[in-house]
Design a protein around this nucleic acid. Structure first.
Lengths: 189, 189
DNA sequence: ACGTCCATGTAAAGAGTTACATGATTCA
DNA sequence: TGAATCATGTAACTCTTTACATGGACGT
């Protein structure tokens, strides 16, 4: 059901097509959610059946027709009810990389260190991208507009998360180096 | 497919029953993965068909019979192949709480602050639990054993993640307070 | 009396992924 | 010549969750 609330949340700001919603997912919600475009279109169709949104088709000459969805009163009500009344679910995480980390005992230290270094670079790039995005969007000093509040707060978490990941990589690499040295000392004695 | 590697990873340390694997998931992998017990039993059955593991049933008097799974050579090979050759997938996150944060523009500042404060407490408890677990397990100073390496590294990330979450909550609460004040000043002028 | 531990699973529903399909326009 | 943008979707599949089922032992 949560995908539904994600879509209603975006539509609470302004009407949009499935295509645009998919782009907004990738841009603003990348830090905490992911949805496939096929899923988005399917869910929107269901939401229309349930009278949470309405759609109107707009014909275009040079591009394919598009279908603009608009949130309805019932959609707003259900969104607010979920926000304030439904108990929060613990986040679901599936992290492929940590799954690999959890079996580092099966490979030589050097290979593990290499994997960590690759991951560090990945997150350095993510961090840079996120920081640039924030600089463009939340110019200067102060506070965001109320409209931008959500993305201001969640993207800040994205920045923190990436920094934390990078720091953790450095720490983990150091742990592995020290373990390697310790083992080498033990074997030469 | 990744659940399969998670299970093979645990079985690479020692044979276990589905029940025990489920417990290990909850204890050691909580920071980056979750699997339901029904899923674990089903996947183990499939893995046996694919000759990655074998099982033997142990009869018990006072308790129900149990089925102990042991990793096989083919299982080890596929695990290592995945670890070193398969391209890492980006982590999939579904965070219910941030979904709510992303629609904070729909509710009064005070209610948003309350939600953040609740979440902060949740993570303070998680942090405490994780730190206690680590203290019990990785006594004193130094480095972990090679067997414990994975859980040493991943649970450290868990600690960092919780600390980061708490700090972010404090920051976000402060942002909301300042926005509220600013709005109040603007309306009285 | 009620909850938790032990231990395994089936069945069905819901959510998510992958492959396929259309077809013009624009950029490298 | 190939890829990306625009824009929508179906079908098949896999993965995940929820509800249900069994039943004795032990603690509060």
């Amino acid at each position: 059901m949560a995908l539904r609330y994600a879509l209603l949340g975006l539509l609470s700001k302004s009407p949009a097509t499935g295509y645009e919603l998919n782009q907004q997912f990738k841009e603003k919600m990348i830090y905490f959610w992911h949805a496939h475009h096929t899923q988005i279109y399917r869910e929107l169709a269901k939401m229309e059946v349930d009278n949470l949104v309405t759609s109107q088709i707009v014909k275009q000459k040079e591009y394919p027709d598009k279908k603009i969805y608009t949130i309805q009163k019932k959609g707003m009500e259900e969104l607010l009810h979920w926000l304030l009344e439904e108990p929060p679910k613990p986040p679901s995480i599936k992290n492929d990389f940590f799954l690999r980390v959890s079996i580092f005992h099966l490979i030589p230290y050097n290979e593990a260190i290499q994997l960590l270094e690759k991951s560090k670079i990945t997150y350095q790039n993510i961090l840079e991208g996120t920081q640039m995005w924030r600089e463009e969007r939340f110019t200067n000093d102060g506070l965001p507009s109320k409209e931008q509040l959500g993305e201001y707060l969640t993207s800040a978490f994205g920045v923190r998360f990436a920094k934390n990941w990078i720091e953790w990589c450095d720490w983990a690499i150091d742990v592995l180096r020290r373990m390697k040295e310790k083992e080498e000392r033990a074997s030469t004695e």
